[in-house]
Amino acid sequence: MRAVVTVIGKDKIGVIYRVSEILSQSKVNIEDISQTILQDVFTMVMLVDLSKSNCQFSELKDRLDALGKEIGMTIRIQNEDIFNAMHTI
């Protein structure tokens, strides 16, 4: 399964590092990444592959959520299919 990780919040040092650290520990591969900073709001979207992941989706989600709370940002992970369903004909 592929999923989309979104990170939104006030920009700070080391955000990509901290998110990537969790993904790497969970054996989740980052396939694509893009980010913008608009008026100090950091927005990052990552496309990740979970096929070799060593943990349950819910576990990964909880860890990303906990990181988000720790660094004061919103971090979500969602199945990629929902975006394709909603935005492609």
Binding site: T6, S34, R76, I82, H87
Partner: peptide, 11 residues
Amino acid sequence: MALFKDIMETV
């Protein structure tokens, strides 16, 4: 992958 703006719209 769906476009950046589409993903952010859903979020």
